[in-house]
């Protein structure tokens, strides 16, 4: 197993818009490159094109929002890592695709070849969901509770039916994620998913003491059921890769929050990782597990 992994390990990072994929990549690169705090995986040989990683890692370190991957953009992220315990070399690759690629697939069923190729030989999935997004899976009962007592129901009913339109983009996020996970394992891709690391980003927005598993069950119940019944190993991590709210470099604002984060002597101490025995700042923990290096 170790010999095979030495050839390179490929994972896919998937998630809808603003789910934290790019920020995770930026923080991970800074983390292993700076060696400010101990991590399970360290940076290996510095060979290759790291221009994209350098760009986003610099933005991250300077306390700006990491620019999200633009529509049509397709960033192949490669990192040479070394397992500290075994000395095993890991050539980690994952593709940073814009969230729109996944959202579009829900409505159109079309997946571009750039996305398809990115999945080839991927053994693990890093599934990003954000804790900083409002719930969007309201049921009929939730709305029924909002009914005004004296409403003319029949009249409103008729009006509502006449105006009904469907917008697939407003489908609850967890439904779109489940649909995508189902679809890539079926024809024509037949992707064999062995391990899924769920990364709950913006973990600093979650009430302290909450366990990642409990959060997923409470906030994304359909996804939680799906993963629980999936024939694959699943781990759930809470990750605050950014450390808090940051301003957009072009728009400015949020100076107080930015200064607070910049006050950390080591930028890597902004990072928080929760769950599965991960070190407090160690973003490599889920990557190591996905790469089957735990216990190796």
């Amino acid at each position: 197993m170790g010999l095979i992994m030495a050839q390179g390990i490929r994972h896919m990072a998937i998630g809808l818009q603003s789910s934290g994929k790019t920020t995770f990549a930026a923080a991970l690169w800074y983390l292993v490159d700076s060696k400010e705090v101990p991590t399970l995986l360290s940076k290996g040989a510095h060979t290759g094109d790291f221009a994209y990683l350098e760009t986003i890692a610099t933005e991250w370190a300077d306390g700006w929002q990491v620019p999200r991957t633009g529509t049509g953009q397709h960033e192949n992220i490669r990192m040479n890592l070394k397992d500290q315990l075994t000395g095993q070399d890991v050539h980690l690759q994952f593709v940073d695709l814009p969230g729109e690629s996944y959202e579009r697939a829900f409505a159109t069923r079309f997946l571009g070849n750039n996305v398809v190729e990115a999945f080839e030989e991927a053994t693990g999935l890093m599934l990003f969901v954000s804790a900083d997004q409002p719930r969007d899976d309201v049921t009929l009962l939730d709305l029924a509770k909002m009914l005004q007592e004296n409403a003319d129901e029949d009249k409103l009913l008729e009006e509502a039916m006449a105006e009904a339109t469907f917008d697939p983009a407003k489908t609850p996020r967890q439904v779109q994620i489940v649909d995508f996970l189902q679809s890539i394992q079926d024809e024509p891709l037949y992707l064999g998913v062995e391990r899924v690391a769920v990364i709950i980003s913006a973990w600093d927005k979650v009430v302290a003491g909450t366990e990642p598993e409990a959060w997923l069950k409470e906030k994304l119940p359909l996804l939680n059921q799906y993963l629980g019944n999936l024939d694959a190993e699943v781990r759930i991590y809470g990750v605050s890769a950014q450390g808090g709210d940051l301003p957009d470099k072009k728009k400015g604002g949020r100076e107080v929050e930015r200064k607070a984060l910049l006050s950390f002597a080591k930028a890597t101490e902004r990072i928080k990782v929760v769950g599965n025995g991960a070190g407090q700042h160690d973003l490599t923990h889920p990557v190591r597990w996905l790469s089957s290096l735990e216990g190796a």
Binding site: L157, A160, E163
Partner: peptide
Amino acid sequence: FVESRTLKAFAERNHLALVTSNGEVPT
């Protein structure tokens, strides 16, 4: 829940119910 081959169809039914209700009458 394990899986559904018709998630978009389900979402359409539910989404229409929510969008059309406008917080007044779910239908």
